[in-house]
Write a protein that binds this DNA or RNA. Sequence first.
DNA 1: CAGTTGACGGCCC
DNA 2: GGGGCCGCCAACT
Length: 106
Amino acid sequence: MNTFEKIYEVVKRIPKGYVASYGQVAALAGNRRWARVVGYALHANPDSEQIPCYRVVTKEGRVSEAFAFGGSNQQIKLLEADGITLVDGRVDMKKYQWDTPELYNY
DNA sequence: CAGTTGACGGCCC
DNA sequence: GGGGCCGCCAACT
């Protein structure tokens, strides 16, 4: 399995109602230094239907402006549809960060 | 094959 | 708390 696929597998495990930071996804994918690679991988998102890349935000809870299919506006909308409240365009990481990834470590 | 790029993160002002 | 700088690693050209 290549690096991108590892990253996608992790993103797919993010539970509804939570978000994960790029660094967190990178760590779960195998290397915490892949934060930038995660961003790259999600930009190249091959399957937006199965990969909830909108649940991945920066450590500050900020969404990307170059969101693949509708801009950050669309991403915010999707997050709110998951029950996540955005304050000033940001997610409250303290509340919504995916803090139990081990429970989803199949 | 070598240099550049980027949906980032940490550290320092 | 916000802005800038540097390091990081795979993909791209």
